[in-house]
Amino acid sequence: MEPPKERVKFIQTDLVLPYHYYAGDYKALYLRALKDKKILGSKCSATGKVFVPPLMSSPDAHAPCEEIVELPDKGIVTTFCVVNVPVYGRDIELPYVVASVALDGADVSIYGLVQECKAEDVEMGTRVQAVWKPDGERQGDHTDIKYFKPTGEPKAPLESFIHRL
């Protein structure tokens, strides 16, 4: 005698794993400051480069970044893409722009939407400014900046941000 020839082909093993993540002091400081419409970065003690969100150490110089600096909420679009298909969980009229924004004084970029303009009006070098959620609605997380909008200032020349791409 033998077990049935017709085997059980699959078993369902749904893993359910509980986690309790800590942001760490650097990210906690950064996120809480957004509530007050402040964007914080950290400065490398060896190279002077400014990282935003702030890092404890610089990736390139392996040096501590112990100084916290406040950055303006203005900068330039370095690179960007135009989204033409709907993304689950994001209810925005198509097409829209997702951009890499180098804030003035920062050596790395953060990501954000660019709104209040046509997608075709966004270029590399377009000057933009953060549009914040109104007072009382900001929670201290990355959605506190709703999006960036063009400031209307002249476009920055490529040479001025090519090192930040």
Partner: peptide, 23 residues
């Protein structure tokens, strides 16, 4: 200066992996 004694920030999250395994 660098942050010291910042009130910890944390988030609970349940990570789920639905696996259907071939026997």
């Amino acid at each position: 200066k660098a942050p010291t004694s910042v009130e910890p920030m944390s988030q609970r999250m349940t990570v789920q992996f639905p696996y259907k395994r071939s026997t």
